[in-house]
Write a protein that binds this DNA or RNA. Structure first.
Length: 269
DNA sequence: AACCAGGGGTACC
DNA sequence: GGTACCCATGGT
């Protein structure tokens, strides 16, 4: 199956820190998402997906309906840093990911590096997920709700084990219906997600952006705050870009973490 | 070998 | 309502 790949850059998406189960494989990438396990790679102007034929799903997953070039073109030309960050990040998009996996993944994310998050998520899948071919799917809410606390801790999640277990129980029991939350706006959604243990405004914002695709979400982590301090004297005016702030945040995060930017901003007196 | 990682909960004031 | 401290674990 082929998709329009003229804008996307799979390598950048895989390295962007919004998804944790997209890994280099041969000339392309392996993706495990929403009960599917595929191989994707660039081929000319296309992205070739092998292992699944649900075109509607993958078009949505890669957010092909959003006009990213138009978004990039509408960035304030006087904001030199943002222009640079966006140019550097060309090919990034905001994926449409499954809410439960995104929720648990970003509960794990607190005080962890992206590499460490990947390891935890993989261990959870290996231990509690359903097998599909050579790999394991992300665990269902029920599987994590019934998981032994010590077994969860064996997945290197540390003190977050209790957060994961309780959150999974709240979902599995029906106390919270994640699919029903699509109808909420960003602010109400964040408030709702904050009821889960281990979820504060930052994690909730990530879930709002990466699963529910609320583009006005602007998650502030240590990297973003560092960039905001350096480039904007404290705070990026995200209200200036109500329908694309989340994507710009991705660009600022991706560029801000890159060696290019870090070398540039080193101060040697 | 200290220090940091896509923070949040809690106990204080 | 702010703020200080604690929380496991892996990478650098």
């Amino acid at each position: 199956m082929k998709l329009d790949g003229r804008y996307l850059n799979l390598a950048k998406i895989a390295d962007s820190g919004q998804c944790f189960r997209m890994t280099p494989s041969g000339k392309g990438f392996e993706i495990i998402a929403s009960g599917r396990h595929v191989l994707v790679c660039h081929e000319g102007d296309s992205i070739v997906v092998k292992g699944d034929n649900d075109q509607a799903f993958w078009k949505h997953y890669f957010d092909l309906k959003t006009d990213y070039p138009a978004i990039l073109a509408s960035v304030d030309p006087d904001d030199v840093f943002l222009q640079t960050a966006c140019a550097y990040s060309k090919g990034l998009c905001i994926l449409n990911q499954e809410p439960f996996e995104t929720l648990i993944s970003f509960i794990i994310s607190q005080r962890k590096s992206i590499k460490a998050i990947r390891i935890c998520v993989e261990k959870l899948a290996d231990r509690f997920g359903e097998k599909l071919g050579s790999r394991y799917l992300f665990p269902t809410p029920k599987a994590l709700a019934n998981a032994n606390l010590q077994c969860l801790q064996d997945c290197a999640v540390g003190y977050r084990a209790a957060y994961i277990q309780k959150t999974a129980q709240m979902v599995a029991s029906g106390e919270v219906n994640l699919n029903a939350l699509y109808q909420l706006n960003h602010q109400d959604l964040v408030q709702e997600l904050c009821h889960f243990p281990g979820v504060g405004v930052k994690v909730a914002s990530c879930v709002s952006l990466f699963a529910y695709h609320n583009m006005e979400a602007f998650p502030r982590d240590v990297w973003i705050m560092r960039v905001e301090e350096q480039e904007y004297g404290g705070r990026f005016p995200e209200e200036k870009y109500p329908h694309m702030a989340g994507f710009l945040q991705q660009c600022m995060f991706f560029y801000g973490k890159s060696p290019d930017y870090r070398v540039k901003t080193v101060k040697n007196p």
